[in-house]
Design a binder for these strands. Structure first.
Lengths: 343, 343
DNA sequence: CTGTTAGCGCGTTCAC
DNA sequence: GTGAACGCGCTAACAG
């Protein structure tokens, strides 16, 4: 079993009594082999349980039919949904997906990117850990890249992203409409274009209502439960607590909810909570969580489509100008947000 | 960019003014090339941004340094955690992971398995969709397989699984200790060894207390929220509702909780809920959910270790007898379970 | 220590 | 329609 020596085309050719190229033609459905010979060959293939060696084929054709997907944090359900979209669409087109988790470390991300290059994947889907890092790795002679979720700053690239700015703008306007004035925003790391856009969206909505998103109302977390929990505790216990908390991702929201439960702060009567990213559990937590949902599955699908287009450029100009595919998010109002509390 | 023509060893050799094999020796750290030549070669490699073509290398060596991971349902956080363990451990040993989602369809699973064979992965981690399906595909001349979570029936295979039987036995004993007699068990598809073992564990615990796990108390769902929800509704609205509900996976528990919330049934005072699989949100839902947690990350890690051992057999006997690595689960008592309700 | 040579399994011209 | 020969990029013998 350690042998791992499968049959080759030569073996099949020998058994079928034809030449290698005939077998090749059959395997690749060239449609130039006579029907009776075709069936003989196919029988031989089945008998030997032959399957072509993709490595050798790739060496010859220059295509591996593999896509690389590099995500910052596979622990985040958002990326799992995107992964599903990627996989489904990849399968559809005869591609396999090499999944890499950067675990929020640029160094690991770079390592993955290099490994993918060595594997000669035909294209890469990248949800980068850092929008500032200059990626020399995606220059020249390497596979085309499509960014998802988060994009590099000041660079025109192929990407598919949510309307982060608008989503947060609308979200905050909704909160303001409820009468909230002291709104705390808990953002992820500002090295993500995603976080930056979201914060800007919040800022604009507040400015329009002559409210300021003051420094003390903008809290920096990462994307994990713990940071949401810690920030939630300090926020709720402060002398002048916000009447609404908007977390820019759903796991921090989970932390906030835990803090709220522990402190027995009535929600939404005392404090409203809203979160970016929808989740399975959003309807079941108590209170159910108002969220802004992203079409993550579609994001994965669209990204593969875009990537495939630059892998197989129909026309030359098709790959000339980088394309941005914007996706719309939707506000799902549930139980955790309500009118502001009046003394 | 569509060119995708990277530099080859020959290019590097030419630039460095050495022979191809010298470059190869440097690339593979053979340690047989003189220090000054080594540095010359390395400089050339860096200058050209050369990275070896893994396909060609694999063709030559018979190893691709790729592992395949096939899971029934990547949507399940349990498998995501396992995936993390797999990836981390694979990276550690210089392997990449080809992730495939069977989406609970045997046909798709088979397709993935064949694709992985064609890609000549060095080994496969498989969480099968069905314990009964006879997998001819994992016979002979194919890569070694390690099963995770769910195993084929009546077959000695390499696998790493949780102590499903014991876990449920202990869980149900805990419920019985609380005074519960009418315990409803909601299981996944009984084509999974996992489900079978869990149900048997429940059955034994109940028998020991002279309780019977009657047919009408065993409910068949899948592993999704919806089925939990539907079953929950019918259970709670029946004329003789159970005093405790034990779901054999956590997403069905989410469905149960939704039903409870909707019907405003007091939990745990009227009905206790317990679930297999722990989750992020288990502490935050209301009431917080009592669960049986599996060490899924370790499962992934251990599976890779086991797989690597059969890929690189130190001794012949190492691969001779299939090994089962059992993992222990832990009961996490939270707010959703309590003493039985007395009229 | 270093260079030369022969395939690994496949797809692809070409002659037949 | 079909078959023989070449080479994709690399590693492993072997010769120097």
């Amino acid at each position: 079993m350690a042998k791992q020596t499968s049959y080759t085309m030569r073996d099949v050719a020998r058994l079928a009594g034809v030449s290698i190229s005939t077998v090749s033609a059959v395997v690749n459905n060239k449609g130039i082999v006579g029907p009776e010979l075709t069936s003989v060959v196919k029988k031989a293939i089945a008998a030997m349980n032959f399957s072509p060696n993709a490595g050798a084929r790739g060496l010859r054709t220059g295509r591996t039919h593999m896509l690389g997907l590099v995500v910052q944090d596979i622990t985040n359900p958002f990326f799992v949904e995107a992964l599903r979209g990627v996989e489904d669409q990849a399968i559809e087109h005869g591609y396999e997906v090499l999944v890499c988790n950067s675990n929020d470390q640029s160094a690991l991300e770079l390592r993955h990117l290099n490994a993918l290059h060595t594997k000669r994947v035909d294209g890469i889907l990248l949800a980068p850990t850092d929008s500032y890092a200059v990626r020399e790795t995606l220059s020249q002679d390497r596979a085309p890249v499509v960014f998802i979720d988060c994009v590099p700053l000041k660079a025109k690239v192929n990407c598919v992203v949510t309307d982060n700015f608008d989503a947060c703008y609308n979200g905050v306007r909704y909160l303001i409409g409820l009468g909230h004035q002291r709104i705390a925003v808990i953002c992820g790391r500002l090295t993500h274009s995603t976080s930056i856009d979201r914060v800007e969206g919040c800022r604009k909505a507040m400015q329009e209502s002559n409210l300021l998103l003051r420094e003390e109302h903008l809290h920096h977390g990462d994307s994990h439960i713990e940071s949401g929990y810690r920030i939630g505790l300090s926020l709720l216990q402060s002398s002048d607590p916000p009447t609404a908390i908007f977390t820019l991702n759903n796991r921090m929201a989970l932390g906030i909810l835990r803090a709220i439960t522990e402190l027995k702060v009535p929600c939404p009567s005392r404090v409203s909570v809203m979160s970016f990213d929808d989740a399975d559990w959003a309807e079941v937590v108590s209170p159910s969580l108002t969220t802004i949902g992203q079409p993550s599955y579609e994001m994965g699908k669209d990204a593969v489509d875009l990537l495939l287009r630059s892998i197989l450029p129909a026309t030359e100009q098709a790959e000339a100008k980088p394309q941005q595919i914007p996706l719309k998010s939707t506000l799902r109002v549930r139980g955790s947000t309500g009118p502001v509390y009046k003394k």
